[in-house]
């Protein structure tokens, strides 16, 4: 067990070091949600009316509504970004080094996932700090209560990225997958507008949004930011984490996954 923990710490530290070396990645991760918050939200505020719905006790501004969705956006983009780095790692060979370590493959992949999730969470807190400076405040305990929600959501989205990376043969193919995964996941969710709003325009779209695991991650974060638990969101997110992690382990199984197909 000591060996496994030493390895996990090293993998997490390596992810942190890599992040420190890529300052532009941090800036991009922060600027993207801030653009949504400060530019898009200003335009959408007039067009979208929001009623009082849980966890909110009163009318809120659109900027306040989209903060949990933008936290989810950071986790989503980082999950995909880290899977992109996995495809790069595989092409550059360093993934081989990791996978030949004398530890179970599931543990090694989980450690990698945990490392990238911790980096994502730090970026979410940096975003929440900037949002606070722009007067978008949340309950004090919400900043603490959201941590487990961010951890689970980050693991779920990271596991999705990990699973995708195991099935992508080459780096060039990744951009297409990003477009077919990130954008539908983000826009077909409750990140930018509540689901009841979506139902007004199309029941089908509403149902798709309701089945989207990212919607449940956003709702889990939204409720946690107001120190409340959304059990359904927790269940869906946990279930999706297990499914995506199992897919990733399956994908990286030398008997089945990309390694064999790559030849």
């Amino acid at each position: 067990m000591r060996h496994a923990l030493i390895a996990m710490r090293a993998i997490v530290l390596r992810e942190a070091l890599r992040f420190v070396h890529q300052r532009e990645r941090f800036i991009a991760a922060l600027v993207r949600p801030l653009v949504w918050l400060l530019v898009f939200a200003a335009g959408f505020r007039a067009a979208l009316g929001l009623s009082i719905s849980p966890p909110y006790q009163t009318y809120i501004t659109y900027e306040t509504y989209i903060v949990p969705g933008l936290c989810g956006m950071i986790l989503l983009f980082n999950g995909m970004q880290s899977s992109l780095s996995l495809v790069y790692d595989r092409e550059m060979g360093s993934m081989r080094l990791l996978l030949t370590a004398p530890l179970s493959r599931a543990w090694l992949l989980f450690s990698k996932l945990l490392g990238s999730t911790i980096i994502s969470i730090l970026q979410v807190y940096a975003f929440l700090l900037v949002a606070w400076l722009f007067d978008i405040t949340l309950p004090g305990w919400g900043y603490v209560a959201v941590l487990p929600a961010l951890l689970l959501g980050g693991l779920m989205l990271g596991a999705l990225g990990l699973a995708l990376s195991s099935f992508i043969k080459q780096l060039e193919n990744f951009a297409g997958v990003m477009n077919f995964v990130i954008f539908p996941m983000f826009f077909l969710s409750s990140a930018l507008y509540p689901l009841w709003k979506m139902a007004e325009s199309s029941e089908l779209l509403h149902d798709i949004c309701a089945a989207n695991p990212f919607t449940h991650t956003v709702e889990l974060i939204r409720f946690a930011l107001y120190v409340e638990l959304n059990p359904m969101a927790l269940l869906w997110t946990a279930l999706a984490t297990v499914v995506f992690m199992a897919l990733a382990v399956w994908g990286y199984d030398p008997a089945r996954g990309m390694m064999t197909r790559k030849g």
């Binding site: 060996h3 390895a7 090293a10 993998i11 390596r14 550059m92 360093s94």
Partner: peptide, 26 residues
């Protein structure tokens, strides 16, 4: 491996420390 598996952004020592940890040494 035939293809280099060093992390180019890490120092020589950091690369070796990372590998040592994967083998349970710290």
């Amino acid at each position: 491996f035939q293809q280099s598996t060093l992390d180019l952004d890490l120092t020589v020592q950091q690369n070796l420390r990372y590998f040592a940890a994967l083998h349970g040494m710290s």
